[in-house]
Simulated assay, not measured.
Amino acid sequence: MMFKEAAKYFSEMGGFGELEPNIMSWTALITGNLQNGYPYQALNLFKKMVIRGVKPNSTTISSVISACAYLSLERNGKEIHGYCIKSEEIDSNLFVGNSLISFYSKSQRLSDVAIKYFDRTKKGRL
Rank of each mutant, 00 (worst) to 15 (best):
I115D: 13
I85M: 04
I23V: 10
I30S: 08
T59A: 15
R125V: 09
N36C: 07
R52M: 06
M13Q: 02
I90G: 11
L29K: 05
S72I: 05
L100T: 04
C84V: 04
L110E: 10
S63W: 02
S63P: 01
L73E: 14
F103M: 01
D91M: 13
T31D: 12
S62H: 01
K86P: 11
F46N: 05
G97M: 08
I61H: 03
F95Y: 13
M1Y: 12
G15F: 15
G77T: 00
F95H: 14
N36W: 06
V50S: 03
I65C: 12
S87T: 10
E88I: 09
I101Q: 05
S87M: 09
G17S: 07
F10M: 02
L29W: 00
G14A: 03
M13C: 05
L110K: 09
P39H: 00
I51G: 02
Y38M: 03
P39M: 01
S87R: 13
M24V: 15
I90D: 13
P56W: 08
K55T: 13
K122M: 13
L29T: 10
Q35N: 07
A28E: 03
Y9K: 07
W26T: 08
F118Y: 15
M13P: 03
F16Q: 07
L45K: 01
G17V: 02
L43M: 06
Y104P: 06
K122G: 06
M49R: 04
I30W: 02
V54K: 02
R120M: 06
G37S: 03
Y70H: 10
N98S: 14
A42E: 04
K55L: 01
K8R: 12
